[in-house]
Amino acid sequence: MNTLRNLFIPLALVGLTAVVGCRREATPAAAPVAAAPVATPQPAPKPIAPDTKFPTLKLTTLDGQPFDLAAQRGKWAIVNFWATWCGPCLKEMPELSALDAMREHIVVVGLAYEDTTEDDLRAFLVKHPVVYPMALVDVYNPPADFDTPRGLPFTYLIGPDGGVVKKYTGPVSARMLEEDIAAAGGPAAG
């Protein structure tokens, strides 16, 4: 039985080659076709978790108050990962603070992404005050529904429906955020 199988497989391959070869010869007017690259098996794409598009974020801010991103629905939320040692982060803080204070349709939350203590962070914020809530997040266990920052600052713009509108790696400005809010259907700046 194995002998028949061993003979059948090579004969089948020869027959298949002959059939394919005949087809090519049957259409001599066709332009030459480049050989297709051999596809290597790829792993199946990882399914996107529903929370990735509509992230959840529940934490306690440095002033002891709860912050729940879901409670901000109806507003544009800016979730800003930053660190005290990050120069561009410090430069954007006053603009983020002004947005939070001057625009009723915008709320900002700062997530200090560094290995420090809450007391040290509070002392830092005395010298660099902002009006928006701040929280210290664990660099070894960042919020699950957000990408781990590969650079700072790292900012998310969340729409009034709770969905991610845009991600920014690097510094943002009030103007940039307001233009992106307007482009996504929100109110124009001014």
Rank of each mutant, 00 (worst) to 15 (best):
T116W: 06
A144K: 14
T155K: 03
V165D: 05
G162I: 03
F154Y: 10
T148F: 00
N141K: 09
T117G: 11
V108T: 04
P153F: 12
T116E: 10
D145N: 06
P143A: 08
S173D: 15
G151I: 09
D115W: 13
L111P: 01
R122I: 15
D147I: 10
L111S: 02
T148G: 01
M102A: 14
P142V: 02
V164L: 07
D147Q: 13
L157R: 01
A135W: 00
V126H: 05
V131S: 14
D115E: 15
V126Y: 05
A174F: 03
D119A: 10
L152I: 13
D120Q: 10
Y140R: 11
H105E: 14
P149W: 08
D119S: 15
P171S: 15
D147E: 12
T155S: 15
Y113A: 09
T116C: 06
D115V: 10
D120P: 06
P133Q: 05
K166T: 09
I106R: 02
P142I: 02
V139M: 05
R175G: 13
L121A: 11
T169P: 05
D147S: 11
G110L: 01
P142M: 09
D119V: 08
D138P: 08
V126F: 05
V108Y: 08
R175D: 13
A112M: 06
V131F: 11
V108S: 05
Y156V: 04
V172D: 00
V108H: 07
A135Y: 01
M102Y: 12
D115C: 14
V130G: 10
L125Y: 10
A135K: 02
P129L: 05
P149A: 14
R150I: 13
G159W: 13
A123M: 06
F146S: 01
Y113R: 02
P129T: 01
Y132R: 00
L125G: 07
V130I: 11
D161E: 10
L157S: 04
V164E: 08
L111G: 01
